[in-house]
């Protein structure tokens, strides 16, 4: 089992409580503290980490590039949904895209009259979205990115509306233009798998919740279990500990049921917890294998 270090704890996200989230924000306010935890994880044998295009993660990455006392590969999650939602609430869709278009990164559009930018955008939404994606990803490209993972809100919204073109365009653009391995995050694994099968698309890399209580395994734990068993793409199990609500032992026993889950994300932030997880999850898998 390949253990991937999650990043939520470093940007103050706790699925348990806001108090814990605030404690995490305090603890990881200083980027050095993030670096130390990741360094400890690397020493213990963690080789991969999830990051997202969040300013805090960019600070960490820059610090990592300057110091680099260990090696780590990264999975990059896009887009920074909270940031976009905040801007959209203020400015609406047009305003958000206008802002994206006017950023320095989109050379072709800078200097254009607002009206023209909007007209161009109306003709080619995909190129606008692609430019936004490229702009968002570019500061993170100095490290080894194993895959780009599309945030679950984006994936699941597109899935709910069954917009096949958006999936094919994303897959193509990430592979061809960004030269990265495209992947997705979804809380609706069964629908995800069924849709890719229906569209005749190869089952891609997907990160999805797999845990003993069936939390966020939609539409039901049983249906997701069946879908996982005959999925031919790579699966990264997430929410395996329910943000701390489930024990490592309980989770380990559950994950052992699936021999095609080779990767899982864990969100530990102390040496003791990192050790406990790698000891239980990795050892058991070796025993099992």
């Amino acid at each position: 089992m390949d253990l991937i270090l999650g990043h939520n704890q470093f940007i103050g996200i706790s699925h348990i409580s806001e108090e814990k989230g605030i404690d995490l924000q305090k603890r990881f306010f200083d980027t050095v503290n993030i670096y130390k935890v990741v360094e400890t994880a690397a020493d213990l044998g963690y080789k991969n980490m999830i990051i997202e295009t969040h300013p805090k993660m960019l600070d960490f990455l820059n610090y990592y590039l300057e110091n680099r006392t260990f090696d780590m590969d990264f999975y990059l999650q896009v887009p920074n949904i909270q940031g976009y939602i905040h801007k959209m609430n203020e400015k609406g869709f047009s305003g958000l895209f206008l802002e994206l278009a006017q950023r320095d990164g989109i050379k072709a559009l800078s200097g254009m009259a607002l009206k023209n930018v909007m007209n161009l955008a109306k003709k080619n939404y995909f190129s606008m979205a692609a430019s936004a994606l490229q702009l968002e990803v570019s500061p993170f490209m100095d490290v080894n990115i194993k895959a780009l993972l599309l945030h679950n809100v984006s994936t699941d919204l597109l899935l709910s509306l069954q917009i096949k073109n958006a999936f094919t365009e994303y897959l193509g653009y990430v592979k061809e233009n960004l030269k990265l391995n495209p992947g997705f995050i979804s809380l609706n694994f069964k629908l995800f798998k069924d849709s890719f099968n229906k569209w005749g698309l190869q089952e891609p890399l997907v990160m999805t919740p797999v845990n003993p209580k069936g939390f966020d395994m939609n539409p039901s734990q049983g249906e997701v279990e069946l879908a996982i068993r005959d999925y031919r793409g790579e699966i990264i199990a997430m929410n395996i500990l329910g943000g701390g609500a489930f024990s490592v032992e309980e989770t380990n026993g559950y994950l052992r049921r699936f021999d095609n889950i080779k990767h899982c994300v864990i969100g530990a932030s102390s040496k003791k917890h990192l050790q406990e997880i790698i000891h239980i999850l990795s050892n058991s898998y070796e025993d099992f294998g």
């Binding site: 699925h15 809380l187 966020d216 939609n218 329910g242 609500a245 489930f246």
Partner: peptide, 17 residues
């Protein structure tokens, strides 16, 4: 009890059940 333990199955979850 955490929400993870009290969850109800939903056919689709986009931004919260």
């Amino acid at each position: 009890y955490y929400k993870q333990e009290l969850k109800k199955d939903v056919p689709m979850n986009i931004a919260g059940p």
